[in-house]
Design a protein around this nucleic acid. Structure first.
Lengths: 250, 250
DNA sequence: CGTTTTATTGAATAGCCTCAATATCGGTGG
DNA sequence: CCACCGATATTGAGGCTATTCAATAAAACG
């Protein structure tokens, strides 16, 4: 019922790509996805999208740009829980449940689709496979939080950095924004520090070390894997929870 | 339709207590809960209940005893992601989704109710309020993982310990196993170390320090809060995500 | 172009770890 | 009931990792 024909572009959004990697979705399913996330909103850098304690009933899907979710400590320091890249959900939990326990703000200018609780639930009812796919994505996000936990608890700064950048690469490839050789990445060393539980100074030293060892280069907004296999080895990176070969559900 | 009358004991399980704290459940709802989790199994210390990569379609609810979920790193070290106390779910995610990405094993002898995917989903269909309550519990668990992430990333060893023991106390009170003054706790210093990302030696020093400062005492399997308010202050403990006054949904 | 953010490097320090030794607890069998 | 054993707890000494403070360089931005 849309004016314009359903272009391949619409059906090939980052979200559609990601979901398709895990659950085989029909063209009709994909059309529901693109209809659901048609309403776009723009956010500037640093403009809070979701605030701790808020009880909105809306969530977002990132169409373009990067964001991060974090918690502020009384001391003024913060811990970044996760970064969001195109195709990722923001505030899915606060839609399904009650309040948000963290903040989300853009790192770059962001375009995001807004979706209400009602629309989401009715889309789920209409296309159950979509519900499965979305819940899968939510589950994967939780697995990544656990992986970050292991990072902080039991990996050295260098291993942490390697593991993090590998994981990010795998996520980006899933939505067509990265290759095995590397990807472009707008994260500053300060943001990396807040995510990895390090000081910005040490982030810099770690990156230098990795570069001098010929493992990876992160300069001018681009991550280049100079020796992918060595990195995987160093970080004990287990692709299992990210790199599925094809759709799990056919 | 049970032979024996519904005793208060059955309806007052740790799980029923916890769920009731967040969603008002009718006696009928509670009966569904107790029916659902009637089938009990016993596990000895160290006997794996859930194994990384397994694709069982069963989950458990702890009836008595303590367990922990963890990931093993290639180096042989491990990171404990969370402890489970009576009333907590084990492997809820692997029921709703596909595979488990971590291991779960008992710390003390454990009695747990087994529940299959089928039974759980049909119970949800029968009593929607139960589904809400369970999803709430799952969401709370995820919030705790995030809190642990903040622990590891941005809190000192002392703050971490204080925050962790306060959180554990709040969880136990929810199921009637602790008071404001303290609680009994079977965790060894080695387990604490694996959970908090510290060495066992340092755990010992931190506990001594907290004891000498008159904040808390952890000896002979019992945690005693010597100065609760000072601890809350030290750890920047925010009860919000745990300590709800009454049922959220009435 | 100045101005602000971001990156880079050095020096000194603090926090936590490892290694190592001893003490205590809880159970187990003689 | 006691001697013994493994697991847990406790304490010291020295070392490594990452931090803080501080200063400079390089980009990014209007």
């Amino acid at each position: 019922m849309t004016m314009q024909p359903a272009t391949p572009t619409v059906l090939d959004s980052p979200l559609a790509r990601k979901l398709s990697a895990f659950v085989r979705l029909s063209t009709d399913d994909l059309r529901v996805v693109s209809d659901l996330f048609r309403r776009r909103r723009n956010f500037g850098i640093g403009v809070e999208m979701i605030h701790q304690g808020q009880t909105d009933q809306t969530a977002f899907v990132l169409a373009s740009g990067w964001a991060c979710s974090y918690k502020i400590l009384p001391g003024g320091t913060r811990q970044i829980v996760d970064f969001q890249v195109p195709g990722d959900f923001l505030g899915l939990r606060s839609v399904l449940f009650r309040t948000s326990d963290h903040n989300v703000e853009p790192i770059t200018p962001v375009q995001a689709s807004e979706v209400t609780q009602r629309d989401l639930l009715s889309a789920f009812a209409e296309t159950p496979r979509l519900a499965t796919a979305v819940l899968w994505a939510a589950s994967r996000d939780e697995a990544m939080v656990v992986e970050r936990l292991v990072d902080l608890g039991r990996r050295s700064a260098t291993e942490r950095m390697a593991h993090f950048l590998l994981e990010l690469g795998a996520r980006l490839r899933l939505v067509g924004m990265g290759e095995r050789s590397g990807y472009s990445c707008p994260l500053s060393q300060y943001l990396l520090a807040d995510a990895l539980g390090l000081s910005a100074v040490h982030v810099n030293r770690v990156l230098r070390e990795l570069r001098e060892e010929g493992m990876l280069t992160f300069q001018k907004g681009r991550v280049t894997f100079d020796d992918y296999d060595a990195l995987v080895e160093l970080a004990a990176f287990d692709r299992a929870y990210l790199d599925h070969e094809g759709p799990l559900l056919t």
